[in-house]
Write a protein that binds this DNA or RNA. Structure first.
Lengths: 110, 110
DNA sequence: AAACCTTATCGTATATTTGCGATATATAAT
DNA sequence: ATTATATATCGCAAATATACGATAAGGTTT
């Protein structure tokens, strides 16, 4: 492809897609799952649990952070991460606003 | 990377990630949005609305169908698509089962 | 049958993602 | 200061995703 056309869609569509992209890899789901159980976790613990190299885990953490799904701060030589629940609430709201209203009303067509 | 490691995660993580991947592109969100408003739509209408070539739209439709998010059947020379609401309900349930239980209980850490 | 219309598939180019080892960086411990 | 520990970043290789034009496949219409 010569050009990416993501920009030509609405901001809402882009935001929702970006959020979905952030959770579109099982490793990142697994990271979020660990974080949701402790709501605070250092990178090293995650590396031990996941079947991935430390650098790979760090990269996934970075993507989650860039997408705003998690917050992180350095704690001495370690990094402490936790889930940004507000971001998840926003995703849920956006997701529902797209489909909820029609879920009931429509019979299936095919 | 020599190998993909997605298989090493749990089925639930893989399923959720696969669903998220399917909606991780604004074009596919837009397609779903059109379908949700009519709950029945032929490919041609979608091609007219989206800023993409017919072959590209067809490819996105195929991905949505493979992921089980939409159903489709041929109607003469046309193809009729509609949303598979059950798949969306399942996604919502899985998504919530991962995070819902802890949303309230946790204070933020960082 | 021939011409037409609609959609799916193929081939191709380019961009992005995934993954790892090596290395850099920053703090803590000795 | 040196060493150890923890995490981030860089550079690279391989796999996937995105997009399009061209073409095939299937059904209508004439």
């Amino acid at each position: 492809m010569a050009v990416h056309k993501k920009e030509e869609f609405s901001a809402k569509e882009q935001n929702l897609a970006a959020f979905a992209k952030a959770i579109s890899h099982p490793a990142r789901i697994a990271i979020l799952s660990v974080l949701s159980k402790r709501n605070q976790c250092i990178c090293g613990e995650i590396v031990e649990i996941l079947p991935l190299a430390q650098s790979t885990v760090s990269q996934h953490l970075k993507e989650l952070k860039n997408a705003g799904l998690i917050d992180g701060e350095t704690d001495g030589p370690r990094s402490c991460y936790c889930i940004n629940w507000k971001a998840f609430e926003k995703f849920n709201a956006d997701f529902n606003s797209l489909f909820e209203k029609l879920k009931e009303a429509n019979a299936k067509c095919c």
